[in-house]
Amino acid sequence: MNKSLRMILGVVLFGAVVAGGFAWHPWAATAKPKTGGKPPPLVGITAARTLDLPVRFAAQGHIVPLNQVDVRPQVTGVIRTVNFREGDEVKPGQLLFELDASDVVAQLHRAEAQANQIRAQLDDATRDLNRTLQLVKSGFMSSAVVDTARSKAESLQAQFKAAQADVDSSRVRVGYTRIFAPIAGKTGAVVVHPGSLAQVGDAAPLVSIVQFDPIAVEFTLPERDLAAVRDAHAAGDTRVGIDLDGATRSGELSFIDNRVNAGNGTIGLKASFANADRHLWPGAYVRVALSAGTTRNAVVLPPQAVLEGPDGNFVFQVDADKRVVSQPVTLLRIQDHNAVVDGLRSGETVVVEGARNLRSGMTVAVDAAADNTADSGARQ
């Protein structure tokens, strides 16, 4: 093939390639897949609403006696009699124990004898003083003798008062040999028996007496609930219930501690309950429900709308341009499937579903099937 023919073939092939390129370009442009940005995240929204919400708190508590006494001996002595059985119900003033009184009775007799001896000496000194006064008036003695007689009588008078105090103390100690119940209640285990030595300062009491009716329940609440409980209690608007064996018992809030526990941020409370049937037993644990009035116009959200971050609780608000903004809120409590919050106004729109991967400033798409704003507004 000569040089001219090769040039002609080259030009033809080049033209075919160029023509093919122009023909393929429009098709390629139409066939190229779209590579636009990711679609905005899909979220469900709701509107904050207001309710008149009864204030109710739940806690775990344990039953404690309102009154308990550990009976201990005031004098050392051998137990002569135990006048009750452990577990008995006793009344105030009921005789519980008698101790051997031989030693303290002997001390009483000795103190009485000493007092009587000093009393006789005092009577004799008083008569001498009176005679001396008469002799001084008659001029048979000097006045200096009167001073001596008076000093002796006054000294014996002081000794007699001290001896009389010893007698009274000994009588008290004799009384301590008979031990009576100081309160009404149920007795616990008896740790001594007739013949046992009861000593002052023993670690274990002779017996413990626990008052059963009325009885109390101790429980704690977080510090943030203190204001609501305190205000309702001052207004006489608190009620306490406990769940016992499937039945509810009602009582009265009787005590709010005078300080918050700085270690765990809780406040201690106590409620009293009638317990004539003795079903409430000291030491047992119960569930406690405390009603503390009503919160008017409480702002509430579904609990899942409230998120927790490094700086506390927050929600994502949605503006008119479908952008989300982080809004800090204070979670007051969760009650009746509602999160009671502070920091929002009624009607403000927040994300309730799909909020976990959001960031403030992002644009979102609202899932119409999960849009609860209309229902929330209807329930206000």
Score class of each variant (00 low, 15 high):
residue 291 S to P: 03
residue 73 P to V: 05
residue 84 F to L: 10
residue 41 P to D: 08
residue 4 S to N: 12
residue 308 E to A: 13
residue 291 S to Q: 15
residue 182 P to E: 03
residue 41 P to S: 13
residue 213 D to E: 10
residue 100 D to W: 00
residue 174 V to T: 05
residue 324 V to H: 00
residue 48 A to K: 07
residue 185 G to K: 06
residue 62 H to C: 04
residue 346 S to I: 02
residue 354 G to K: 09
residue 226 L to H: 10
residue 100 D to Q: 07
residue 277 D to C: 11
residue 95 L to W: 06
residue 33 P to C: 11
residue 160 F to M: 11
residue 369 A to V: 11
residue 307 L to W: 02
residue 304 Q to T: 03
residue 88 D to C: 06
residue 6 R to W: 03
residue 127 R to G: 04
residue 337 H to L: 10
residue 266 T to N: 06
residue 273 F to Q: 00
residue 155 S to F: 02
residue 195 G to S: 07
residue 114 Q to L: 12
residue 245 D to E: 14
residue 194 P to M: 09
residue 116 N to Y: 09
residue 242 I to D: 03
residue 334 I to R: 11
residue 33 P to R: 14
residue 54 P to H: 12
residue 140 F to S: 13
residue 262 A to T: 00
residue 252 E to Y: 02
residue 288 V to C: 11
residue 299 V to W: 01
residue 111 A to G: 08
residue 307 L to G: 00
residue 130 N to W: 11
residue 89 E to G: 05
residue 20 G to I: 08
residue 160 F to Q: 04
residue 379 R to K: 15
residue 360 S to W: 05
residue 164 Q to V: 09
residue 107 Q to N: 12
residue 166 D to K: 15
residue 331 L to D: 00
residue 330 T to I: 10
residue 77 G to E: 03
residue 146 V to H: 10
residue 241 G to Q: 14
residue 172 V to A: 15
residue 42 L to I: 03
residue 313 N to M: 08
residue 131 R to V: 08
residue 21 G to S: 09
residue 6 R to T: 02
residue 96 L to P: 03
residue 15 G to L: 12
residue 322 K to E: 11
residue 307 L to Q: 07
residue 329 V to G: 02
residue 260 V to P: 02
residue 124 D to G: 01
residue 214 P to F: 06
residue 104 V to L: 03
residue 23 A to V: 13
residue 185 G to I: 02
residue 230 R to W: 10
residue 257 D to C: 08
residue 288 V to T: 09
residue 348 E to M: 12
residue 166 D to M: 14
residue 18 V to D: 04
residue 84 F to G: 00
residue 79 I to C: 04
residue 380 Q to Y: 00
residue 356 R to L: 10
residue 84 F to K: 07
residue 247 A to V: 13
residue 247 A to G: 10
residue 214 P to C: 10
residue 36 G to C: 01
residue 120 A to Q: 08
residue 208 S to H: 07
residue 62 H to M: 11
residue 118 I to W: 05
residue 8 I to C: 10
residue 323 R to A: 07
residue 226 L to W: 09
residue 176 Y to N: 09
residue 193 H to Q: 14
residue 137 K to A: 14
residue 243 D to V: 13
residue 22 F to L: 14
residue 337 H to P: 05
residue 201 G to L: 11
residue 78 V to T: 13
residue 336 D to I: 07
residue 199 Q to M: 13
residue 337 H to A: 13
residue 336 D to P: 04
residue 282 P to Y: 01
residue 129 L to H: 08
residue 28 A to D: 01
residue 304 Q to E: 06
residue 276 A to F: 05
residue 288 V to K: 08
residue 273 F to Y: 04
residue 291 S to T: 13
residue 215 I to P: 01
residue 285 Y to D: 05
residue 307 L to F: 04
residue 283 G to C: 11
residue 67 N to I: 01
residue 291 S to K: 14
residue 174 V to N: 03
residue 119 R to V: 05
residue 255 F to V: 06
residue 195 G to Y: 04
